[in-house]
């Protein structure tokens, strides 16, 4: 075990950044996608717990940028640059986007997990941020944790235990 690391928690439809010897975590990703960005040189990490693919469907008056893939990606980049990261050093890893329940008639809502993953990738494209690790899909929940010191993304699930990206 390593020396105690400070933990930064990110809730559902939320985003945050962490630095130096901190660890950033989000729990219980189902159809949501946990998108992490990492600047290896500055040892800065960012994490967004994205719930829905596009803000075009938003009906809320105060838009929560962290909730939608198309708004969360630019906002997370902005926050990381503000914290001292360099946009052209960023690398992305993502996990989640599962289909928790399987139904006979697959409506659009039911396919929300895969759509979240697609939207995240689409939103990363204009920033030319490479996706260097991905553990998405399936039908199970995940908890993820990014270590700022190493940039390693640890993924835990009930059915498949732990893995690292």
């Amino acid at each position: 075990m390593t020396i105690e690391q400070k933990l930064v928690k990110v809730g559902m439809a939320d985003l945050g950044t962490a630095s130096e010897d901190e660890v950033i975590r989000t729990t219980g990703l189902g159809s949501c996608v946990g998108l992490t960005l990492y600047d290896p040189k500055a040892r800065l990490a960012g994490l967004a717990h994205i719930m829905l693919p596009t803000s075009a469907i938003a009906r809320e008056s105060n838009l929560n940028l962290a909730k939608y893939a198309d708004t969360a990606v630019p906002e997370l980049i902005r926050r990381m640059v503000l914290a001292g990261a360099s946009a052209n050093r960023l690398v992305a890893k993502m996990a989640g986007g599962a289909q928790m329940f399987v139904f006979a008639g697959q409506s659009d809502t039911m396919r929300i997990g895969p759509r979240n993953v697609e939207s995240c990738k689409l939103a990363l494209l204009p920033f030319a941020i490479p996706i260097i690790g991905e553990d998405t899909g399936g039908n199970y929940g995940r908890t993820i944790e990014l270590d700022c010191r190493s940039g390693i993304l640890a993924i835990r699930s009930v059915q498949y235990g732990a893995k690292e990206l």
Binding site: G28, L29, G30, L52, R59, I112, V158, Q159
Partner: peptide, 17 residues
């Protein structure tokens, strides 16, 4: 599975609001 992963699925309709 994890409660968070399961329940979030039932919140999608509210997520837009």
């Amino acid at each position: 599975d994890m409660a968070g992963a399961i329940l979030s699925f039932g919140l999608l309709q509210h997520g837009q609001m």
